[in-house]
């Protein structure tokens, strides 16, 4: 159940303390174990290519996806495993995709950062999906059923001109786009202070686009905060930028972290996982163990599958 929203100020850990539902906790920890499993599989040479894990950011798609309908378009990015898992709860399909095995979401052709399923689509080029989202949103508005186009981007994505061209057109044409910004403060290895003048709020408001800032890492409280905002966009069509202050716990990709161990340790100390574990130790331990076992079983099963084939090209 979703707790009632406190609309008077941004949600944070300090003012929302309800224990998350088992379902929410399962999804959060499924994503966490999925990502940690991937890093281990890379280390042992069982996966070819690259990956970008969302460790530390799992709660954002867990908060957002339940608010989206089947006819909404979701645009994900290179760091998109959490988005996919929260949308479809299909770790088998995603792992098979990344391992190039039968039953992969895109038969192993797309890989980690090029996934497409129904109205979910991801790409590895920063900012590319924003103008595309505006076009999809125009058609959704034409259908008059309240559909949304929801691109997920990072703070680094704001370096791309496509973002501004898209915000301008979305505002001009009243395109129901909700941009979810996962601001983890670092673009690959470049910290925000080295690549962004001003801030995201100022950039959104410059186009007359509504802006909402979300702090804290309690998925259900964030979801309750967002629900009326998304409903408003469904009704009005006016685009919205939602910025989540978050943190990336792992490297950009596999082993390319230039931050000091102390910096990363400081982030881990304020991680949602550590916080949840401390506040709800029993249910956390139970679900954590179950998701760890589930991922281990999934790896074993997917590894036993045949290599994928690319027949419909």
């Amino acid at each position: 159940m979703i707790p009632p929203a406190n609309l008077s100020h941004p949600v944070s850990s300090a003012n929302a303390s309800a224990c998350p539902s088992r379902e929410t906790l399962e999804l959060l920890l499924l994503i966490r174990h999925f990502e940690e499993t991937l890093l281990r599989l890379f280390q042992s040479g069982k996966i070819h290519g690259t990956t970008h894990t969302c460790l530390g950011q799992e709660y954002i798609p867990v908060a957002v996806m339940p608010l989206l309908r089947d006819d909404d378009f979701v645009f994900s990015n290179h760091r998109g495993h959490g988005h996919y898992l929260a949308r479809f709860r299909d770790p088998e399909g995603l792992l098979a995709e990344i391992m190039g095995r039968e039953g992969g979401t895109c038969d192993g052709v797309g890989g980690s950062q090029h996934l497409r399923r129904d109205r979910y689509i991801s790409t590895g080029v920063q900012g590319e999906s924003l103008p595309v989202a505006v076009g999809a949103a125009l058609q959704l508005r034409r259908k008059k059923r309240g559909g949304l186009a929801v691109p997920f981007i990072g703070d680094g994505t704001w370096g791309q001109g496509a973002v501004y061209e898209a915000l301008n057109m979305a505002a001009l044409w009243n395109a129901p786009v909700v941009v979810i910004v996962e601001n983890n403060g670092i673009a690959q290895t470049t910290v925000r202070s080295a690549n962004m003048a001003g801030n995201i709020e100022g950039r959104a408001r410059a186009f007359g686009v509504e802006y909402l800032r979300c702090t804290g890492h309690e998925a259900e409280a964030l979801q309750a905060r967002l629900a009326p905002e998304l409903d408003r966009v469904r009704q009005s069509g006016a685009p919205l930028v939602v910025e989540f202050e978050t943190r990336r716990l792992a490297a950009h990709s596999k082993g390319d972290d230039t931050r000091t161990p102390e910096e990363v340790a400081a982030l881990r100390a304020i991680d949602w996982g550590a916080d949840y574990q401390a506040r709800w130790p029993e249910i956390f331990a139970e679900v954590d163990a179950r998701m760890r076992d589930r991922m281990a079983a999934i790896v074993e099963e997917v590894e036993s599958r045949a290599l994928s084939s690319w027949s419909n090209r």
Binding site: P131, V132, G135, E165
Partner: peptide
């Protein structure tokens, strides 16, 4: 309703066309 005059944003409006295409247009 189906002719859009765009800002001077080639990257952006080709992207918008891609989005329309993605939505079946």
């Amino acid at each position: 309703d189906r002719v859009l005059t765009t800002p001077i944003s080639e990257l952006g409006f080709v992207g918008v066309a891609n989005g329309l295409s993605l939505a079946g247009q």
